[in-house]
Every structure is written in structure tokens, then in C-alpha cells.
Design a protein around this nucleic acid. Structure first.
Lengths: 231, 231
DNA sequence: ACTTTTTATTACCTATGGGTAATATACGGC
DNA sequence: GCCGTATATTACCCATAGGTAATAAAAAGT
């Protein structure tokens, strides 16, 4: 709000700011430790005592930053969701064919799934949340599903994707990606980037329309019957 | 053991047999109720009291059939696993190209995922099991993964599947199928059969080699570069 | 009809772990 | 240097739910 930045030497706002930052850093540390432990042992088996212990504090100290265990769980989920929302906004802004957008979505989503917060989107059970938070989660899941379906439908409309049912296709792709959150491990042989690339290829090679020279016709309504028969 | 069947009128073994069957039926009823409740509410939130209540008995009665909650959980998992083992044995016995076997596997696995016992293969957490049972589960999961990879490798070897990494491809396919257990609901719009068919198509359309007239060459080592280019 | 075995019930124990109250300590502001 | 706020600790509460006697009811065997 003030014209002089925080670099101004004896600013009376500095201590206040630094204090707030220290607090946020501690809050983040709690979340990082919690999400890690929740993933490692499962939400119900993980105890707040152990979260605190790993941070060299005691359980009640956690309550300075969170209202309770469920609050922490929801925050972990929200951080993962935020990342998804961010890159979807980026993809939407960039534009391109449906197929191009879908491929970007697959790659980004796959890579998010290899992170702790990303995995929490699929490893945690919404039924452990309050009704209020649970509704937020369900709404977000529906939104992601709609995005997948939309890109697929866009691709069919613009001719970059061969006609097929967007709903089922979205389930196939999203399921495959979501499962990454269940098997990926950082110390494993595969890098997040390699997984992103591989999944992008494997999950789109079947749907891409032939790289026909023709510009996408405005209405590719009826496809040619068995134009090359993939099976 | 006896030559006369149980249809013989006053067989002394009859009561014994019928008694055992009645017991097994009750045991099955417990499992059906338990798996349903575990899926509905999640293992940790579901209580043995409620399982018993739904069966019109009381909690301690359950201990006539099972050693405890974990025992019930493991049995639910085992019943699902049994079905998977069964159809894999059938597919192995029938033979065919790698692609044909993979397609059968996908369809059967997808349909099992739409059942309660099938879903328990992916919805329950092995960490809730004793170390002994957990090892059994892990071994079975590895075995299923090996089967997917083997069919894919077979298909690449016999020319029915275009060359690609069996490991990643198996992850893509199995992940997509496993996720069915998370979203399918019996009262939904889709039938298990429709899902089996759709997933079989969607998950193999990208890998099938062109239906070339030639019989599969013994070594399709180097595929023709962009022989039609699906992407 | 009796005894024995199986199956179920009532009443209880107890470990676990989330959450809270009372209280001490560190720290920035003045 | 004193005060108020933020942050942490110790000690405790208590609801939940898995599991276990002790015992009653039901069924099978003789």
C-alpha cells in the first residue's frame, strides 16, 4: 500500500511482515509434513502426534495453525487442486486445437500426480471431510471432468480428434492419470517428466485424427466407415 | 466320500452337510454386507456394529465366522482376487495373439471392477492388513501387473501390437481399469458390459498393429517409419 | 428326554487419538 | 525494562469402536 517498498531501511511494517512470513512458513511446513505422512501411512493411521513429532513440536501447537485434522486434510487437497486449476487456466488461455489442449492437459495433470499435493487429490477420501468441504471437492472433481470432456469434444468438433464418446474417453484418460498418484514413488526409476511424455503419447495415439493434409472441415459429422480399421 | 449321494433319503451325512452349508451361507452374507458397507463408508468409518445391525444380529456373533475386522477385509479382497485369477487362467488356456489375450483381459478386468468384490481390490488399503496378508496382496498385484506386461510383450513379439514399452503401457491400461472401481455405481447409466466393451476399444485402438494382410512375421523388429502415422 | 455343541446375546474392558483448558515462554512494540 | 500478543507446553478429557468374558438359547446327536 505504501509507495516505498519493504527495502526502505527502518520501515515500521517490516517486523510485522517478517513475522507473518515466518508464520506462513511454519504453516507450510506443517502441511508438507502432514501430506507426506498422510500419504505414507494413510489418513486414519497417521496421527497428529506424529505430525507434530516430526516437526519437533507437540500436538496442541498445531492448533495455532489449523482448526483440526480435517482442516489439514482439506488444505492439502486444496493445494493440489490449486495447481490443477492454474495449469488449466494456462491451457485455456493459450488456445489451440482440442487435441493440442488435451495433450497439454494430460502432461500437466500427470506431472502434478507425481507430487505429494497432487496425489492427495486422488489418495484422500472426501468422506473424511465435513459436508461443506466435501461439496467443494466434489464440485472441483466435476469441473476437472468437464474440462477433459470439453477438450475432447472440442477436438472432435475441430477435426483433431476422431469421433467418439467424450464421457467414456474422459474416464479412460483421467482414470489412467489418477492412478499415477497411487503407484508413483519419488525414489523410483521414472522421472515425472518421462511419465508426462509417455502418458501423453499413449493416451492420445488412439484418438488423433489422421494427419490429413486437408484443413479440418467445419462439420466432420459422419466419419468414413472403417477408414483404415484400427481393429 | 460315500458312494450314495446326498439324495439318498436317510443319509446320516445330510444334517451335517446342510449344517455346514447354512454356516457358509451366513458367512457369505456377512462378507456381502461387510464389503458393501466398507465400500459405502470406507473401511475405517464402517463399524462392525453396523455390519451386524444390517444382518439383524449383534457384533460378537460375527466372531463366530471371522477372527476380526481385518480378517473380514482380507476375505473381501481375496474373493475379488479369486475372480481375477479365474479369468486369467481361462485366457491363458484359450491362447491366441497377444492383442487378443490383452483385449480379453481388459474386458474381464473391467467387468470385475464393477462388482463389489472387484472394487475391493483397488478401494481397500493393504496397509490396513497384517503384514502377512499384506504380503499376499502385494504378490497378487505384482502377478496381475506381470500378466498385463506379458500379454503386451507377447503381442509385440507376434506382431499384433505395435512396439512400445510394456511396463508403461501396462500402467496406462491397468490404471484406467482400476479407476473404474472408484467411480462405477450400479444405479448409474452404464452397464458393466458396455463399460467392458468401451474400455476394450479405447484402450487397444492405439496399440493394434495395422490389420495387414500378411501373417505376423516372426521378427517385426523394425516397424516401417510412419506407415500411416496415427498421430 | 438328556447331553453336547454350536451359535448368539448382554455387559464390559480398554487402547487409541482427536481435541481442550490451564499455563509457561518467547518476542515485538513502546 | 515493562506489557501484550503470539506461540508453545503439560496435563487432561472422552467418545469411539474393536475385541472379550460370561452366559443364554437353539439345534444336533444319542
Amino acid at each position: 500500500m505504501d509507495a516505498r517498498g519493504p527495502s526502505s531501511d527502518s520501515s515500521p511494517w517490516m517486523p510485522f511482515e517478517s513475522r507473518r512470513r515466518a508464520r506462513d512458513e511454519k504453516r507450510d511446513a506443517v502441511l508438507r509434513t502432514a501430506v507426506h505422512l498422510f500419504l505414507e501411512q494413510g489418513y486414519h493411521r497417521a496421527t497428529l502426534n506424529e505430525v507434530a513429532e516430526r516437526l519437533n513440536i507437540t500436538k496442541p501447537a498445531l492448533y495455532n495453525y489449523f482448526r483440526g485434522k480435517e482442516d489439514i486434510l482439506f488444505e492439502c487437497w486444496a493445494l493440489g487442486q490449486e495447481r490443477v486449476d492454474d495449469f488449466i487456466a494456462g491451457i485455456d488461455a493459450a488456445g489451440g486445437t482440442g487435441l493440442a489442449k488435451l495433450r497439454k492437459l494430460i502432461r500437466a495433470y500427470a506431472e502434478v500426480m507425481t507430487t505429494d499435493y497432487g496425489a492427495s487429490l486422488v489418495r484422500f477420501d472426501p468422506r473424511d471431510l465435513t459436508e461443506k468441504n466435501s461439496r467443494v471437492v466434489r464440485a472441483a472433481k466435476r469441473s476437472i471432468d468437464r474440462t477433459f470432456r470439453k477438450y475432447i469434444a472440442d477436438g472432435i468438433a475441430d477435426g483433431s480428434i476422431r469421433p467418439r464418446d467424450p464421457k467414456l474417453t474422459a474416464f479412460v484418460i483421467a482414470g489412467s492419470l489418477n492412478w499415477i498418484g497411487h503407484w508413483f514413488q519419488r525414489d523410483g526409476a521414472m522421472s515425472a517428466e518421462a511419465i508426462g511424455s509417455e502418458f501423453t503419447e499413449r493416451l492420445t495415439e488412439g484418438l488423433a485424427a489422421k494427419p490429413a493434409r486437408r484443413r479440418a472441415a467445419s462439420t466432420p459429422a459422419k466419419r468414413r466407415k472403417s477408414s483404415g480399421g484400427t481393429r
